[in-house]
Every structure is written in structure tokens, then in C-alpha cells.
Amino acid sequence: MTTPRRLLLVAAPALLLAPAIAHATPDAMAAALREFTGGAEVRRGRVAMDISPLVENGNTVPLSVIVDSPMTEDDHVRAIAIFNERNPQPHVITAHYSARSGQALLATHIRLATSQNLLAVAALSGGTFWSDSAQVVVTLAACLEG
């Protein structure tokens, strides 16, 4: 009988063949962020990003963001953008809102090529920017098998 430990050591590489892929860098993420904010200051707060800290498969990762805002004509969220550090591209999605949105909420499924930091930034109608970040560990990376 193969011992469990040995079995797992032998089998693991066969089930997991990960090609090396190019990825963005924290610098690229900073550049993408600057494009979104025009260089304005980004403060922490008002934004709540919900994503599992431990992801079992990077191909489909549920992510939601909610921003604390009255969503009136005078005071609402204009846009929410999501950035990442280590996918091939730093930008994930940008969503646009108006007072008619009722709530500044975004829920989607994203891809994560590897363990990394994510950043959610909200642009408010008054011209300020707010953010939340999350550190995600990915056990199986995205985009392997066809």
C-alpha cells in the first residue's frame, strides 16, 4: 500500500501543471490607479470589498463591493474600479453609477492568476476617492486547462 503522504507527493505534480505566465506588478497597478483617479488622493474607508481570503480556484472568484453613500443627485458614487497586482493586467473592472442606481453595489466573478492584493476604489460625485483592499491566497491559479 502506498502511504498517504507519499501518494500525495507523487500525484500532486501530475494533477497540477501550471505554465508560467506574465503578470502585472505593483507598479503597473499604481499606474492603472493613477489613470482612474487622475492622481488625486485615495483615502481608506467607505468602501467594503468582500472576497474570500482563501480561494480554491482562481478561474471564478466571487467578489462584491459596496460603498457607503446616500446615492442622491448631490452625493453619490460615480464609479467603482477594481485593480490587482499580479494578473497579466492590473485592471479588472470599472462600473459606473448615478443617483438612479439606488445603491453603490458591484458583484461579479473575477479571475486571479495567483495569490495577491486587490484594491477597490470608489470615485464620489464630490471628487473624492475612497478605497478598500484585500489580500487573497489562491490555491489553484486561473487559466490552466483548456
Binding site: T60, N87, T94, S101, L105, L106, T108, H109, I110
Partner: peptide, 21 residues
């Protein structure tokens, strides 16, 4: 009432949820 721009980091068979008054 809502719009979004996607990069390749959006998962296959895209899911999107948004709200509207």
C-alpha cells in the same frame, strides 16, 4: 442606470449584479 467595462480578469460566463431604483 449602470454600466461597466471589463478586462480579461472577468471570469468566463460573466456574472454581474447591480441595483436600480
Amino acid at each position: 442606470v449602470f454600466a461597466a467595462e471589463f478586462s480579461p480578469a472577468i471570469a468566463a460566463n460573466p456574472f454581474l449584479s447591480f441595483t436600480m431604483n
